[in-house]
Amino acid sequence: MSGTYETPGGTHETPGDPHGGRDRPGHRAALALGDDALVLAQRLGEWAGHAPELEEDVALANIALDLLGQARTLLSLVGDEDKLAYLREEREFRNVQLVEQPNGDFAQTIIRQLYFSVYQELLYGQLAGCRPEDATPVAALAAKAVKETAYHRDHAEQWTLRLGDGTEESHRRAQHAVDALWRYTGELFQPVEGLDVDWDNLRATWTTSVRSVLEQATLRVPEGPQSAVWAAGGGRQGVHTEPFGRLLAEMQHLHRSHPEASW
């Protein structure tokens, strides 16, 4: 499956990839995980000043900052972090579609975080657990970041419980988010080239964890498909959802308006 959907610019020299090294498996992996972290940090950054309580403003910013830090480390393994973040086209981003989904209400943000953080913690855990002689730079980042990720997962879990088992309104909103985002979860388990991960195990463990949190939160686990029926592919192939173009436009606009400037 992987490699089927090359980006249009995938094999050219691009600004972020002066040495053409992005095709190396390690780079593909760093790009996929780095883009996940970058795009989710960007989304969480939109919350600043809008959170339901000041304490939560601080908490969401903490998560965003952790993710942004991970993104910078991962992208720097591939090339210049800013060129990669600001000068790539939409099709060249390798993040899963889940992280680009709009914030919506607080429930949507929390459930997105739950789905993603459970995944990221398991993924980083597996990467960090490799034998030292096999450790790649990505594995080194994973080992460092897995604790942050566990904290993010805990935050999402705590809130899923409170929203699911809080009031009627919060339950309704949480259930809606659980259902609406479910179709973006299948993509999480698509093997990423360059990552030594047992994907079947990852999927099984993810499903058990998420199911257990949802059930504890009195939320119904969706039964529908975990991915949209569309042959074009998903985020790991550079195919994204409508809101992503606007996210990039906003993120990249200033940087692109001043070519060659440094900040």
Binding site: D57, V58, A61, N62, R72, D82, Y86, W263
Partner: peptide, 26 residues
């Protein structure tokens, strides 16, 4: 300006700063 910060370094700094302001409010 968080979502439009022109470099990732600046984005991180600005996020941390705005977060500090929430903290100072608290």
């Amino acid at each position: 300006w968080i979502t439009r910060a022109p470099s990732l370094r600046r984005k991180a700094i600005l996020m941390a700063k705005v977060q500090d302001e929430a903290g100072h409010g608290l």
